[in-house]
């Protein structure tokens, strides 16, 4: 119990750190994931190939390895002097984007082909068809898996802690090193994670219900 009260500022910073990297990498993953999903269903073969390669590489690489690349290789080439926050966001966001892409692509395949055919018969381009007709109808199917993916991302953000980014896991390790009872540290850390993950599932449930009414 004491450890929380004694180190409240540290726990608070850790919580905010986890929250910050979760939000930024989730946004990055969503934007990239939708874009790459568009590539994967596009009629242009090079774009399709790029999308497939993106998913294959990022989804099959261990996240820790991506972090190693982000923290030790990327700064050598670009983003010199980038903060752990930025590098961690890149690693997490890129990794998660491959899962988002596949969830979105699954959603796209649930939209009847006739919808896209009708749009294209009106003279809409591929991008217009995807953005205005297919994706809006895919959203409802994509929300539940997306919720799981973002929750997984939250928990994956702990790896950023191991690379020196100040977040919950990083704080718990710090306090553990100081000799506090691990059980209490874990309990408070776990509760902090639960606050974030429950908020995410609540948020997605809200979106799902909103979309359910819209039709």
């Amino acid at each position: 119990m004491n450890v929380l009260l004694d180190y409240l500022p540290e726990f608070r910073d850790g919580f905010l750190g986890t929250l910050a990297i979760t939000v930024s990498s989730a946004l990055l993953a969503l934007v990239l994931g939708v874009l790459i999903a568009g590539f994967r269903v596009s009629p242009v073969p090079p774009l399709r190939a790029f999308g497939t390669a993106w998913v294959t590489v990022l989804r099959n690489t261990p996240l820790t390895l991506l972090f190693l690349v982000a923290f030790f290789v990327v700064p050598q080439i670009l983003f010199q002097g980038a903060s752990p926050y930025v590098l961690g966001t890149l690693a997490l966001g890129f990794y998660t984007s491959s899962f988002v892409c596949e969830a979105v692509r699954a959603g796209i395949t649930t939209v009847p082909l006739g919808q896209a055919e009708a749009a294209r018969s009106l003279g809409m381009t591929f991008a217009q068809t995807l953005r205005m007709v297919v994706l809006p109808q895919a959203t409802r199917t994509v929300i539940p898996p997306l919720s799981s993916i973002i929750i997984a991302l939250t928990k994956n953000s702990a790896i950023a802690g191991a690379f020196g980014y100040g977040e919950l896991f990083n704080v718990s390790k710090l306090l553990n090193d100081k000799g506090y009872a691990i059980a209490w540290i874990f309990l408070w850390t776990a509760l902090a994670y639960l606050v974030i993950t429950f908020s995410i599932s609540g948020l997605f449930r809200l979106v799902e219900r909103r979309l359910g009414v819209a039709r």
């Binding site: 009847p112 006739g114 919808q115 749009a119 294209r120 018969s121 003279g123 007709v133 819209a214 039709r215």
Partner: peptide, 29 residues
């Protein structure tokens, strides 16, 4: 796409945009 805009198509299964109202369906193109 430009050419298709000049060719109207009516399908067996209607294929109206399910997420848009009737009015929006006719306005979108």
């Amino acid at each position: 796409a430009r050419l298709r805009a000049d060719v109207g198509m009516v399908f067996q299964s209607f294929n109206l945009f399910a997420h848009k109202t009737v009015l929006e369906n006719v306005m979108l193109g």
